[in-house]
Design a binder for these strands. Sequence first.
DNA 1: GCCCTATATATCAACCCGATATAGGATGCG
DNA 2: CGCATCCTATATCGGGTTGATATATAGGGC
Lengths: 205, 205
Amino acid sequence: MDVKDLCLGALTYGDATGYDLKKFFESTFSHCFLAGYGSIYPALAELTGEKLVVARTVPGQAGPSKKLYQLTDAGRDAFLARLEATEPQHKVKSEFLVLMHFAHLLPVARLDAVLDQHLKELEHKLALISAYESGDEMGKRPSSGARFVCGFGKAVMGAAQDYILAHRDALKKGGTRNGNRSTRITRARPKASVIASRNRGYPHA
Amino acid sequence: MDVKDLCLGALTYGDATGYDLKKFFESTFSHCFLAGYGSIYPALAELTGEKLVVARTVPGQAGPSKKLYQLTDAGRDAFLARLEATEPQHKVKSEFLVLMHFAHLLPVARLDAVLDQHLKELEHKLALISAYESGDEMGKRPSSGARFVCGFGKAVMGAAQDYILAHRDALKKGGTRNGNRSTRITRARPKASVIASRNRGYPHA
DNA sequence: GCCCTATATATCAACCCGATATAGGATGCG
DNA sequence: CGCATCCTATATCGGGTTGATATATAGGGC
């Protein structure tokens, strides 16, 4: 599943420009999929070449000229085929959790700031979902699938909020780098590897 | 935060080979960060060039010869600096949720299979976390940060399990593509764009 | 003996991400 | 009225990641 497939899927809801698609992804998929212009425009160009979408240039009435993309019948078939073929992966890449893992190397103030920022972002994304669910912009109510995804995001991010609130104190007490600017924690290096426990026995240099 | 930083962080626990690092990432960060050989080995090569790590070649006793990487003092300082500088992002890329969003275009059997597979993967990752938490391989108990990350993963993935179990029936009732092999859902295309609602009014071609 | 798995390093094409450039229209504000 | 700023809209580029693949040896199971 790449951005091309996602564009095909979005176009099943109607014609759109690349700019529209980005906004759509941000509103509906903000908590589970990302796609920037650097992926969308090349994807649309390729899809056009494969005859899965067609573009009509509309002279710019409000702003510059735009290209409205429309799904072809072949494109619709291709999307349905991809839905059946793609494996349902679910990947998380969280700098936030990496920072938390190394909390013992962070100054307390930084740790607090990071936690607060993440809580703020969770609230922001939850607000985005609520805004989409009460979809004013489109008269139509979201599909059952869209509602499922929204509820999923709310459940998961709500659990994240609860967990952080319940455990941030324990994390701070677990020992952090105190506020001074000394970057060296301890001069002594651990004598044996913790990661590669089976490397023990090899003389270190 | 790239894989280079992650390698520095892992090496704060002790010396390791590229292979060890991959296994470490899989055990500790499996639910929040991914790194394959294609990222790790180039990262270690660059870090060596920057004098942030040093490598010792150990002739292969069990298997081929290995390179044990060790963090230098400069590397440790660089890692601490990166911890303070990196923004705590948290990104999710979920083909699974995209499939769920388009549930109305999926055959019921496929929908069931996808849900079951995701539940199975959640259980698998939860088992990985439990295995790491009761860390037998290393006598040492995980740090408070590591425990926080584990608990976070368990909370979030547990919420995902509960949500799926509670709402999969509603999703199926919401209307799916019935089992036959006709790929065309409806011949009639929606006349107005749902995504780009403000494109209404422009005549279509 | 043979196959499969685990250890261990390395590379490559394809793809994605984030930043940046460009530009006209709308909006706001003193 | 002039100026700044934001919104719409398209497009590209470098750097980094992904996933697959190649290579080689040791050990366990059958």
